[in-house]
């Protein structure tokens, strides 16, 4: 095993995980708001924010899908060591990590069941940057309107149309994270 897999976890898990969760909760409950997430570091290409989300939310009960260039031996070993999460195909995943292009086709991911819409995937979308410009967002968590640099709008409009079904997204870049739950109404850029 590559010794890199053993390092990069939280040094004080209860406290660091609590701060990380609050950042993730703020991001998801206020779409368009950009939060800082740090504390964990994983082998490239996983960003700090995505690595921190992984150690905060993943465990042996959450199947994880690594998409495209994120599906490396080093990253598989790191996630397995730090979280114990089983690595699976897209359809069975409760979490997925990858670039937006690598996560396509997006229809592969669980959108929940009509009677259990919570059984849906959460996508951690790695981005080069995130900024408060681009697609117009409205809906729960947003007072009037917000803007977020989404990779596209069509897929998120289609996802919202499925509400209460649909996947939920975290966008990560470096130590930054933004959330986009299925409840958000995505407008045009």
């Amino acid at each position: 095993m590559n010794p890199d897999a053993l390092i990069g976890g939280f040094t004080d898990a209860p406290v660091q995980a609590s701060h990380a969760f609050r950042a993730a909760l703020n991001a998801l409950s206020r779409p368009g708001q950009i939060e800082t997430l740090h504390g964990a570091s994983a082998p490239a290409p996983l960003s700090t924010a995505a690595a921190t989300l992984a150690v905060t939310l993943f465990d042996a009960t959450t199947p994880v899908h690594l998409a495209g260039t994120h599906d490396t031996a080093a990253l598989r070993a790191w996630i397995t060591f730090h979280t114990g999460a089983p690595l699976v195909d897209a359809g069975a995943a409760s979490f997925a990590i990858g670039t937006w292009a690598a996560l396509q086709p997006i229809q592969r991911f669980a959108i929940g069941l009509p009677d259990y819409p919570d059984r849906a995937a959460t996508l951690i979308v790695e981005m080069p940057t995130i900024a408060k410009v681009g697609a117009r967002l409205t809906g729960p968590g947003i007072e009037t309107e917000a803007f977020l640099s989404l990779p596209e709008t069509a897929a998120f409009k289609a996802n919202h149309a499925l509400f209460p079904l649909g996947f939920d997204c975290f966008f990560t870049a470096g130590a930054q994270v933004a959330g986009l739950p299925r409840s958000t109404i995505v407008g045009d850029i």
Binding site: A24, L28, S29, T56, L57, D59, T122, P181, S183
Partner: peptide, 14 residues
Amino acid sequence: KRMIRRAILKGVAI
């Protein structure tokens, strides 16, 4: 806490 946190995030999304 992880299990509860995941439930809270799904609750926020729906």
